[in-house]
């Protein structure tokens, strides 16, 4: 009898040791009001209440970035992209570290992407934005921005005129007509920072998606390999399936595509990704997905690869350590960088 009791005790101890390992449920929350996009958070947490509480904290963190990077609204007592576009031509303006880091990253990425990603292109992009908004509202009278206006605006897009002073974290526009537009990197940057913060303070394992900027970290206990499956949207909206499904963790997956934001003029689609050289949307690819450790870099690279010719884009991605890409072409075919296949869901 004693022996059986001892065995039962052994069993009990073992069962408990095994049980307290990963016993967490998985939850999802969706927000619509930040970064002008859909944000979904999926994480493993102890209880629905704990998850809601952690989500509220993450939301507040993201809201901080949203306000700093907002191009269209000013907030009382806050220096953001909107107020910089208004005031930075008059003299150096001190900004929050987060905004300063974003702009510094913008200048850096301008060099690495051969000028394809340029946060100083606001003058050109706002023209496209206004015509796109008007064209979406009233499709019958949709029009393209006049080329003369685009060319005039393109005279004021030099990244050299964005003066960043790291000592006192100030921003100054040397060209009074320079306008910032951080749309190509803001979501990726915010996803990166907020994801790292969430990993540090909120969850062991989670996946955040900021309008297609996906940051995944930790072990997904609901996957046999502990990874997170990320579906890459098919630019061809008649297609049945995702273009690809990749399994990742502790890394970012970002897609730039012509289907995300566009309007139609005379039956032709014009998307929101504008080539700084031609001042028009690029048409080489319909979508580019980048996987790499840093979401901000992935976001910038996906825009750059969308605009660069295939050969130059391939060279750029192969020269960037730890980054892989998938290009979707208008004819429905797709090409991969050399190491992309390793991420495909098995």
């Amino acid at each position: 009898m004693k022996r059986i009791t001892a065995v039962c005790l052994c069993l009990l101890v073992l069962l408990q040791a095994a049980a307290c390992g990963e016993r967490r449920d998985r939850f999802t929350e969706t927000w619509f009001d930040l970064f002008d996009t859909v944000i979904t958070v999926t994480a493993c947490d102890e209880s629905p209440a704990a998850f809601r509480e952690h989500c509220a904290a993450l939301r507040e963190e993201l809201q901080g970035y949203h306000r700093l990077f907002d191009l269209y609204h000013a907030y009382e007592g806050l220096v953001n992209v909107r107020t910089l576009n208004r005031d930075a031509k008059n003299g150096p303006v001190a900004v929050d570290d987060r905004l300063f880091d974003l702009l510094a990253f913008g200048k850096e990425i301008y060099r690495t992407t051969k000028g394809k990603v340029n946060v100083c292109m606001g003058a050109v992009l706002s023209l496209w934005h206004d015509y796109r908004e008007a064209g979406t509202e009233d499709p019958a009278n949709a029009a393209l921005p006049p080329e003369t206006a685009l060319k005039e605006a393109a005279k004021h897009v030099s990244a050299d005129d964005l003066i960043l002073n790291p000592a006192d974290k100030t921003v100054y526009f040397a060209d009074p007509l320079l306008q910032l537009d951080v749309g190509a990197i803001a979501k990726g940057f915010a996803a990166q920072r907020a994801g790292a913060w969430a990993k540090e303070t909120l969850w062991n394992a989670a996946v955040l998606s900021l309008g297609g900027n996906v940051v995944a970290f930790g072990v997904n206990p609901y996957n046999s390999r502990g990874l997170w499956n990320v579906g890459v949207e098919n630019p061809d909206e008649t297609a049945e399936d995702f273009l690809a499904t990749v399994s990742v963790s502790d890394c970012a997956v970002v897609t730039s595509g012509d289907y995300q934001r566009y309007y139609t003029v005379n039956g032709k689609k014009y998307c929101h990704i504008i080539d700084p050289e031609t001042l028009f949307p690029a048409r080489t690819f319909t979508g580019v997905t980048v996987i790499c450790g840093d979401s901000a870099l992935a976001d910038a690279l996906s825009t750059a690869l969308f605009l660069l010719p295939e050969r130059e884009g391939t060279a750029l991605i192969e020269a960037t350590p730890g980054a892989e890409a998938l290009w979707a072409k208008p004819d429905g075919s797709a090409i991969q960088s050399s190491g992309f296949a390793a991420y495909l869901k098995k």
Partner: peptide, 29 residues
Amino acid sequence: GESIICLPHKLVVTVINEKETDGVDARAG
């Protein structure tokens, strides 16, 4: 894992699989 999103109405329709949790966890794009 597929979904239809109506942004203006904040409505999301998502396909789930009650038996399997190995679908797609997030969408890029």
